[in-house]
Design a protein around this nucleic acid. Structure first.
Lengths: 151, 151
DNA sequence: ATACTTGCAAATGATTTGCCAGTGT
DNA sequence: ACACTGGCAAATCATTTGCAAGTAT
């Protein structure tokens, strides 16, 4: 269901670089922490904390779900990770370097795909003019029907 | 935090009318059911199930939260009620006759306000052209910053 | 009379938190 | 050594579900 992403752009684009960032912030490089990073680098799109804890379905060793959440939070605090919420489902986490300007999620099949910066800007303009709100399509993507699920 | 709404438009606009709709569908008119309707008619905007169960803060007698959820579901099934989701918070329920084409919610203060049909249409057009998705701003409103919370 | 409903408790799913043992630096 | 982390169980929050007792029709 996960649509492939464009190529990375900013920030630490390798595990060693990310680990350096951790050290610079005075954070420790534990096995659990490293695993979360490995999972995020290995994933081919935003993933759930649960998927990371399960070792991406066997590709990596398992880890404790609570620790995964804690580490994702920590990594997000130092700018290495970003996450967004998916309709009724669990949140999706990705490396900040692979994150996009916004997302859309299909309320029916759960597929999520990134939005181009220009699209987000257009929508923001419409909304801002209509009621002064500034949309945050990164943290809370728009929900809709993908072309395949539009009966 | 709740922004006032425009005036009603469609469907049963009175409690007796709503009760008739219930009877027509072969559903029973119980005290608990009636209370949910009264709360929705008395509320001045979309409210949480919890608020209804609490009797809108004393204005009405309390009722069982599980029953409130069940009745809201029932009422929604027969078209009397609609609900939408609010960022991290609890869902909001309103009479279908008072519902709008879409909503925006402030991720900071929780304020939610209705969107005009035209605004929703414009956003839908942008998104549809960008990636073929058809947004559902009614069930899952856009999340953003309201003018007051934009630091 | 009998299906539909209720109230209450317990289960869900996602995420968080308390705590103490374990470990990076 | 010692503060930072990890694992695991228990707690939250919103919502749902199981079930026996109650009631609208």
């Amino acid at each position: 269901m996960t649509v492939p992403h464009e190529t990375p752009v900013l920030a630490p684009a390798s595990i060693p670089a990310a680990i350096t960032t951790l050290r610079v912030r005075g954070l420790r490089v534990s096995a659990a922490r490293r695993l979360v990073l490995e999972a995020l680098f290995a994933a081919d799109g935003p993933v759930t904390a649960d998927a990371i804890a399960d070792g991406l379905g066997g590709r990596l060793p398992e880890s404790d779900l609570a620790s995964v959440y804690r580490n994702l939070d920590t990594l997000e605090e130092i700018g290495l990770v970003r996450h967004f919420h998916v309709a009724h489902g669990a949140g999706r986490y990705a490396l900040a370097s692979r994150h996009h300007a916004g997302y859309v999620v299909c309320e029916h099949c759960g597929a999520h795909r990134p939005l181009e910066r220009g699209t987000v800007a257009q929508i923001a303009a419409v909304l801002r003019e209509a009621c002064g709100y500034d949309p945050q399509l990164v943290h809370f993507p728009m929900v809709g029907r993908c072309p395949e699920c539009r009966f």
